[in-house]
Design a protein around this nucleic acid. Structure first.
Lengths: 341, 341
DNA sequence: CTGTTAGCGCATTCAC
DNA sequence: GTGAATGCGCTAACAG
C-alpha cells in the first residue's frame, strides 16, 4: 500500500549513503556503476539501496544532465486507427533506449495543441513527434521550438521540418501492378473523400501504373466516403454501368468490404470473375472477409520507429534531411485477387 | 529551429529576473501570480518572461514540490482495441487537470512490465493506471508500490487493489432483456473463446435474464474464436439444427457480422425473421453492416476517465473503495433487432 | 579510493 | 514589496 500521510517517504541517495556508512558521492558512484569505488564498498552500498528499495530520482538527474530522457508524442486524434500503430512503433523504439514517452492528445484543437506543446516544453522533453491522422500536410509547430520535432503520417506544411509519411503514390502503383500481373486489364477505382491527399495520391499512382502498361481506368474514379456503405453503393452502380470490369481497386479496406458484399449480391465471383483490392491492411477487416482481402500495408509501426530514430539522431546532433520523406509501403496478397487452390 | 551546439539555452528564471532587474524570488512570485508583488513590477517581469519565451522547468518545480504532476499508463498491449478508448479517457481527464501521462507498453511481457514500472517510479509519477486487454484478472503489481495504482479493464487479482472493469454480466442481461422486449423467445448464443471471463460473464448475465423471463437458451452456447469466420460457421450450424430460432445474441460484433452474413446466405431476414445482437459497439463494424448492429457499449472512455479520477482522489488521500468495481454498460439499438420504418 | 564542495532551476521562508 | 538564503536529490569536479 502506498503511504498516505505518515513517515516513510521514498528513499533518497543520502538515506542509502547513511545506511551504508559512506558519503553521498560515493553512494552515487556505486549505484551508477562507476569504476572508482572499492568492490567491498560497492556491494555494501548496493545492499543498502536494495533494502531501502531505492530508486534514483530521474528529475534530479535530469536537472543536472540537462536532458530528461523523455519525448512528447503529440497527436491530433487518438481515435484514428492510423495513429495507434505509429505510437506503438515509437514507444517501442524509445523504450529500448531508456526513453519514456509523454502522450498528448490535442483532439484536433489548435488551441489545445498549443497548451500541450507548452506543457511538453515545460517538462523539458528532449524531442517531439507530431502524429497526424491524415496524410494531408498540417500546420508546422514553427521553427522556434527549442527541441527537435519530427512529423509522422501527416507531414508539416513547412519544408524546413522533418516529415515522415507513407508513400501513397507507390501504394497506388503497386496495387495496379499487382492486378495487372494477375491478368486484369479492365480496372476501376472506388475511393473515399476526394479532399484527402491519400485519395488523390493513390489515384495518381494507379494512373501512372496503368499508363505504363498502356491502359486506362474503366470509367471515372468514384469518390465519396471511406465507408462500407459507399463501397456497396458504388460497386452496384459501377458493375451495372461497366459489367466488363474485371478488377476494382478500392481506396480503403472498408470500401473493399462493401464492394465484396455487392459482388456477392450480384453473383460475381471473387476473385475469378472480379478481383478486389483494399488499402490499409486493417486486419480486422481484411482477414475476416470472404475471400480475404488483398491490401496495401503502410508499415505504420515501422514509420513510428523511424520517427523515433529521427528524433534520437536529431538529439545527438545528427540532422536527418529536412523535408517530407515518403516511406515504402507493402503489398499483402490474399484471396480477393488470387484464387486459392 | 532548435539550437544544436551554440549558445541560446532555454531561458531560466534567473535570466528573466536579471532582464527585469529584480531578484529571482520576486520573479518567481510574479510569474506564479502570487499577490505580494507590486503591479508595476509584475508587468515588468511578465514582459521579460515573454521576451525570453520563458517556460518554467517542471522538473525543478517537481523536485521542490514532491509531486511531479505526471502519471503512468501501463498497458500490456497497445494493439488491443479496448485499451485505446480507456487511454483516451484517462488522458482527457488528466489533461484537464494539468497532469501529463507517461505511456508504457509492456507488450504482455512480465519482465518488461517490471522495467517499465521501475522507470515510472524513477520518474516519480504521482500515480499509475494499469490497463489490461481482457477482463480476466491479472497479477497485481503488489502492495509495496509507493504511489496509488488503479487497474482498468483487467482487474487486479488482489482484492486490496482498486480495479475498474465493465459489467459484462449486466451487459449480457441487458442484451437478452432487449431481445425479449422485442418479442423474441427462442434465443441462441454464439460467443468467442470460452477461456475469457468476458465470454463467461456475458453468458451468465444472459442466462439470468432468460431465467427471469421463464425462458432458456436454445441449444448450447457456442464458443470458439472472436472472429467473423466463426460467426459465419456457427450460425450456419445453429440455424440448420434449430431453424426455429428468432434471435442470436453474439459475444462480439465481429461474430455478429459473421452471423449476419450467414443469415443473408440462408435467406433469413434480419431483423424480421431473426434478430441479431453484437457486443462491444465497435463502430467500424456495427455501423457498417446491413442492417446496422444493435450492440452493447462498455463505455470505455468513461471508464478511463473514472480511473483517472480514482488516481486523483488517491493522490489527494481520499481512498476509493478497494476491490473490483463493475461499471455500467449501455445498450445501443440499431436495425439488427428493430426494423426501421 | 573516498569525501567535500558546488551547483542544476526553482519556491519558499524570513529578514529588511 | 523585495531580496538574500536554504534546500529539493543528485552528479561532477576536485581535494584529501
Amino acid at each position: 500500500m502506498h503511504d498516505g500521510a505518515e513517515g516513510a517517504r521514498t528513499a533518497t541517495l543520502s538515506d542509502v549513503a547513511r545506511r551504508a556508512g559512506v558519503s553521498i558521492a560515493t553512494a552515487s558512484k556505486a549505484v551508477n556503476g562507476r569504476s572508482d569505488v572499492a568492490a567491498t564498498t560497492r556491494t555494501r552500498v548496493l545492499a543498502a539501496a536494495e533494502e531501502l528499495s531505492f530508486t534514483p530520482n530521474a528529475m534530479a538527474r535530469g536537472l543536472l544532465a540537462g536532458r530528461t530522457g523523455t519525448v512528447g508524442l503529440l497527436t491530433g486524434d487518438l481515435e484514428g486507427r492510423f495513429v495507434i500503430p505509429i505510437l506503438m512503433g515509437a514507444e517501442d523504439a524509445f523504450g529500448a533506449g531508456q526513453v519514456n514517452v509523454f502522450l498528448c492528445d490535442a483532439r484536433g484543437d489548435a488551441i489545445r495543441e498549443q497548451h500541450q506543446l507548452k506543457a511538453l516544453l515545460s517538462r523539458r522533453v528532449d524531442g517531439i513527434i507530431v502524429v497526424g491522422r491524415q496524410t494531408d500536410p498540417r500546420p508546422s509547430l514553427g521553427q522556434d521550438v527549442p527541441v527537435p520535432v519530427v512529423y509522422a503520417y501527416a507531414p508539416s506544411d513547412d519544408p524546413r521540418d522533418v516529415s515522415l509519411t507513407p508513400d501513397n503514390v507507390a501504394g497506388g502503383r503497386m496495387a495496379i501492378e499487382h492486378l495487372i500481373s494477375c491478368g486484369r486489364t479492365r480496372i476501376a477505382h472506388i475511393s473515399g473523400d476526394p479532399a484527402y491527399a491519400a485519395a488523390q495520391d493513390r489515384l495518381a499512382g494507379a494512373r501512372a501504373a496503368l499508363a505504363g502498361a498502356g491502359l486506362g481506368l474503366v470509367g471515372d474514379p468514384m469518390f465519396s466516403a471511406w465507408s462500407e456503405h459507399w463501397g456497396r453503393d458504388a460497386a452496384a452502380l459501377l458493375l451495372q454501368r461497366h459489367p466488363e470490369i474485371d478488377a476494382i481497386f478500392c481506396g480503403s479496406d472498408q470500401i473493399a468490404r462493401g464492394v465484396l458484399d455487392t459482388a456477392r449480391d450480384l453473383g460475381r465471383d471473387v476473385p475469378d470473375d472480379l478481383a478486389v483490392m483494399g488499402y490499409d491492411n486493417w486486419s480486422a477487416l481484411a482477414e475476416n472477409s470472404r475471400p480475404e482481402l488483398t491490401s496495401i500495408d503502410a508499415n505504420l509501426q515501422q514509420l513510428g520507429r523511424r520517427a523515433a530514430q529521427c528524433v534520437f539522431d536529431a538529439i545527438d546532433g545528427e540532422t536527418t534531411g529536412v523535408g517530407t520523406h515518403h516511406l515504402p509501403v507493402r503489398l499483402v496478397i490474399r484471396g480477393s485477387t488470387i484464387a486459392r487452390r
